[in-house]
Amino acid sequence: MKPFGYVRAGSVEEAADAYASHPGARYLGGGTNLVDLMKLGVEQPATLVDVSRLPLDSVEELPAGALRIGATVRNSDLAAHPLVRDRYPVLSQALLAGASGQLRNIATTGGNLLQRTRCPYFQDTSKPCNKREPGSGCGARDGVHRDHAVLGHSPHCIATHPSDMAVALAALDAQVELYGADGERSVPAAEFHRLPGDHPECDTEIRPGEIITGVVLPATAAGLPSRYRKARDRASYAFALASVAAVLRVDDGVVQHVGVAFGALAHRPWRARRAEEALLGAAPTAAAFERAVDLELAAAQPLSDNAYKVGLARDLALDVLTRLAPPTTST
């Protein structure tokens, strides 16, 4: 770790200004991933702009029934928030399925979204990685890739995004609020993270210097049945092998609203649009769920060591959807 400067920002504007005036700056939220990567030499900031004390640490109800989560709300506080637990249980469950109690006390909402892949080739500066060093190659493709992507990967990168929280946000149609040189804007959570394509070094749609100020959970998903399920190598404190977040509303025997997203299958939380289209307006039967999920996963292109993920994701999605469907129709 090279020596670096440190600036504590008192406001969002101050943070963006500090970032702009310090070449090589990085924002410091909880630091759980950034400090980890700095120790590995993967991240080498010249200056840390500390945004962890910005006044963005509250969860507030918006007039139309939506919920805004400040970017510095800690993962543990978000998971425990009564409104989140009550209206968006999938988000609370996803958070609690990730990391450990003490890490969730540190990690922030914004930082969770911006965490990097745990691909071992990305983390090891002695190995090629197009995400870390564009053009150097992908060590994982010919290496060990049991944990890697089966959907949407590119010849340049097969990494997955490690967040549980982001999977729930994608399924919930959340919006990520950003502030930068061009002012404020918001991006759908499901589109905030990118596919690797030719530029795996870009994880997200965030622009240089932009800062996440918050996440808005829409009123449309509030109070709907929702659920998160994750499979992992040990019972706790492990990244997902595959996970699914789903929101489902069934009225009059047909699906009126559905949001499904997969975790650990792709470079971003994988919003299952095809499956959702197939389900909207359909009766929530086991056959319909199977058809929809298979339609989505037909796009999978597993590698030699990770074909299991397709079947695992299918199982998880069918299990979660079946449990969310009203009992009378879920056969």
Partner: peptide
């Protein structure tokens, strides 16, 4: 509680 190894 927090992991002190990750806190600058």
């Amino acid at each position: 509680r927090a992991n002190s190894c990750l806190l600058p």
